[in-house]
Design a protein around this nucleic acid. Structure first.
Length: 190
DNA sequence: ATTGAAAGCCTGG
DNA sequence: CCAGGCTTTCAAT
């Protein structure tokens, strides 16, 4: 295998998907304005690795930096405009879905199990923490499941806003319960 | 109906 | 190893 092959595999993202993320994997990001507030979208060579919400750009980039401490962060509107567009469109009309590839390599094995199940919850539907725990085969790990939801960096893409308490009430949300309430309302079947 | 405590289990420090 | 969390269940006001 020569240098060209190596370069090609790196560029394809497939090799990157197989290995653990390294400092060589740039994280490219940009922020935008949605109807509900500011949003940040970030991608690695593998896919979208973060979708964050917040009130100010500083807050958003600080959040990103905290989640990816030893990666090179690159602000680039041009390299993220497609992604950002999709996310903003999704917020306006969630029923259209979010067609993006995700990079969930950060996250423990347990967390990824939870996130995978979460991705199967369709727009307009909700699930309970207890049911989520059952689905991953660990019915007792309810509280750990909630923590896994809280650890999710890919808001909207991994729809942890569709998780409610067993009594049907709205529970916490990393980005504030107001966002959660607004998203669920927007997704509710008319 | 409310409140409190304990259980159960993954994480980060 | 320990403390704590986007929970849940159960017992006691």
């Amino acid at each position: 295998m020569n240098l060209h092959h190596i370069r090609a595999r790196r560029a394809s993202g497939e090799a990157a998907a197989a290995r653990a993320p390294t400092a060589r994997d740039e994280v490219v990001y940009a922020t935008g304005e949605s109807a509900l507030g500011k949003v940040l979208v970030a991608r690695s060579p593998v896919g979208i690795c973060a979708i964050l919400m917040g009130d100010t750009e500083d807050e958003l980039t600080a959040d990103l930096a905290a989640r990816f401490p030893n990666r090179v962060l690159v602000s680039s509107r041009s390299r993220t405009s497609d992604d950002l567009g999709k996310v903003l469109r999704f917020i306006n009309k969630p029923s259209t879905g979010l067609d993006l590839q995700f990079d969930m390599r950060h996250g423990t094995a347990f967390q990824r199990k939870v996130w995978e199940v979460l991705r199967t919850i369709p727009c307009g539907a909700t699930i309970t923490y207890a049911a989520l725990a059952r689905r991953i085969g660990q019915p007792e790990a309810v509280r750990a499941v909630a923590n896994a939801c809280a650890a999710n960096a890919i808001a909207l893409g991994i729809p942890c806003h569709r998780v409610l308490r067993s009594d049907g009430t709205l529970s916490g949300y990393r980005w504030g319960v107001e966002w959660k309430r607004a998203l669920i309302k927007k997704e509710a079947p008319s």
